[in-house]
Amino acid sequence: MGKFNVLQHDLVPEHHLVPVGEEDKVLKELDISKDLLPKISRNDPTVKALEDIHGKLDNGRIIKIIRKSPTVGYSIYYRVISGEVFK
């Protein structure tokens, strides 16, 4: 069996890498600085799965997450890759 891709699991929402060039646009839209965005550990399985596609991702890259919502259809969330160790 090949390596399992968590992003293909039903319960894992869509994760997309925001291209560096579009980061400013996203931040401006959200009216927020990057350090105030929610973080995601670089050890997170989804980040590793994205690295399989895009190659190594630096800390500070933004990930766009699209979650299904029973009330509004889809909700969009952003997280920044962080090297911090979360407890």
Binding site: L30, L36, L37, P38, R67, P70, T71, V72, S75, Y77
Partner: peptide
Amino acid sequence: VGAVIQFKYGEDGVDPTRSDKGKT
């Protein structure tokens, strides 16, 4: 600090108190 927890309250901005049993 101003760090974001959710971009929209509950991800949909719906106040559960005014919701209809959780539906809008």
